[in-house]
Design a protein around this nucleic acid. Structure first.
Lengths: 344, 344
DNA sequence: GGCTCTTACTATAACGTTTTAGAAACTGCA
DNA sequence: TGCAGTTTCTAAAACGTTATAGTAAGAGCC
């Protein structure tokens, strides 16, 4: 596909000017010919394209950017919190994959715990160093979204917020996840669930807890939320908390973990307290990359399709930038009960 | 730190021209004042800085880029192979972290299995869309490195090559890793090692196999290399291969795995063949993110410090771009015997 | 008082592109 | 033949910055 021969070694990179000189046309004509403008003759267009190809011409992005004000850059601002590492790289890959063949580049801009979450966002908007941006780890009331919305800057988010803003997002339906997790555990005959939820200030935590608690009530299960740890706590802390709880009276017989590492840690904690997975308790959780079943085959796990999220977000942000209506405004990945699988 | 007030809502973004008008100075003077040129009076500099701050002035990067030819972009070309996901996100984070506060941005450009590995590299060089680039997963004879070297384009690599090129790199010392893995297994009284090595065409595979095989010879251990699978094979394949081997006569009593997932899969395979970890066999491996001990506490694992690699590479590539001599030309993370730890 | 030297500033061109307004050449038609 | 209409091309300005060459004013010196 990339048939253009590279420019002769050491030579200057060809510009519109080079092609103009070569063809005897004006720079403006060459420019318009290359973008297939209607007021350029077919023969001329063909000739220009051939010369461009022969010379290995490539647009100077800085010049286009300066002239048009369009950067052709999409920024991804990444939360560095927790164990979302697999999650993260999958997201990056899938966005980059969706951008392939388009004019857009992806710049990655993590923000760090010591930083105001607004900093990278403000930076991008103020310097206009991207045309649009993608955020993850949304909060119910998220100042970043307010800022972007106030400045009419195109953005899309992985996860929802609760601010009544209408913007493109993709989310995993954690409410359904929570509901189904309970259902599946109930089907195993479990009566008492102990849940390691994500940090309460994240939007998806609310959804997950809501779904689980409601369904537990409906099914008549006892529902208990870990108070001292979240799924973002260190593995050690989660393990200790679960071990402690399982050693106390009224031992739960089921677990829900909000993240992959907290799931592993929870199992380790329950086992330390002498409980056997599949016999004394079951655990339901989700993961972005398939490996929990190599840890314990008995675990009930849903695969979250982060690749789908990345692709959706890339398309949505491009549509937003170009002022097109997105194919779909919002996306939700809804797990089904049958998606909860063991590795047995 | 970022004290600059944002420009009044809706107003045009201020440029040097704005400041020039505001101060009564020429554009050139403002430009030079802001970059602290020696031929501008102190009073003027102070006044210009104040106005710039008040107006929330930020350089237009496209203009700078067009004028100077410098992009202030560093590209990271990522291999998508195998299970290096944790590895990958750690690398991204650490590079981005090292770039924080500098003028450089990080654009991520994965390449995909269906693609010529040279494509993204050529693209960046031809379009001059970055000042320098970082590559990982080097091959002994790597066309990407040859191309970059031929075009005198600044680059740094995670991993070495075998082409006699002098360029900045950071590597984990896999030869020492291989050697020590054998040593540690020998200390456990093991006599017969089965190794799941990385794909043979990767540089680090050569190193690892070399170290392990030599040390095995020195220690009088039997050394056997898995022929049908590599550490990049699917978990299922690795598990099957190890299970098969452990079911055959002359069962090994030790494993070395070249990657984290292949380590998990190997253990699963050995266990399927009825072997018990710590009793019938031991396994040595490495990981980028701490979690293998939650899988089996008995595993002997070294933590590879990918964060250090990212930081090193970021610094090295900036030095290369700016024509400075790097603080250190090459970096090697050398594991020690005492770094092999169990989770017990 | 004329000379050079230094300090502090400015005008202008250039980077490579796109856009706008307009010019030139051709066509068709009366 | 003349004129409007169409097609195809061009000149020039602009985006925001930096580099270069140069100017003006004052200081120092004999």
């Amino acid at each position: 596909m990339t048939e253009s021969s590279s420019p002769p070694f050491g030579a200057e990179r060809p510009t519109l000017k080079t092609i103009a000189a070569e063809s005897g046309l004006a720079i403006a004509t060459v420019s318009r010919a290359l973008k297939d403008a209607p007021d350029i003759g077919e023969g001329t267009k063909k000739r220009v394209r051939e010369i461009a190809l022969r010379l290995g011409y490539r647009q100077n992005r800085a010049a286009v950017r300066l002239r048009t004000g369009k950067t052709n850059v999409i920024a991804l601002v990444l939360s560095t919190e927790s164990d979302v590492m697999n999650h993260t790289s999958k997201l990056i890959y899938s966005i980059a994959a969706a951008l392939r063949g388009t004019a857009y580049h992806l710049v990655v801009m993590p923000f760090f715990p010591d930083q105001d979450p607004l900093d990278p966002v403000r930076y991008i908007v103020e310097t206009e160093s991207a045309d649009g941006l993608i955020l993850n780890q949304t909060k119910p009331d998220d100042p970043r979204l307010r800022y972007l919305s106030d400045h009419a800057f195109p953005f899309a988010t992985h996860g929802r917020s609760d601010m009544g803003l209408d913007h493109p997002y993709f989310d995993f339906d954690n409410e359904t996840f929570g509901r189904l997790a309970i259902k599946v555990l109930a089907k195993q005959g479990r009566k008492h669930v102990f849940m390691i939820a994500p940090p309460r200030n994240h939007m998806y935590s609310r959804h997950m807890v809501l779904g689980a608690s409601q369904e537990a009530a409906a099914q008549g299960l006892r529902f208990e939320l870990a108070e001292t740890v979240t799924s973002d706590s260190s593995a050690r802390e989660v393990e200790d908390a679960v071990a402690l709880r399982f050693a106390q009276a009224g031992r739960p017989d089921a677990l829900i973990a909000g993240s992959t590492t907290s799931a592993m840690a929870s199992v380790a904690g329950a086992e330390r307290a002498g409980a056997v997975i599949g016999r004394d308790f079951d655990i339901a959780t989700k993961e972005a990359i398939s490996f929990l079943h190599r840890f314990r085959r008995e675990m009930l796990v849903v695969q979250e399709d982060v690749g789908q999220a990345g692709q959706f977000l890339a398309r949505a942000i491009m549509a937003a930038i170009e002022g097109r209506a997105p194919e779909q405004g919002q996306g939700l990945e809804i797990p089904a009960e049958s998606d909860f699988k063991t590795g047995i």
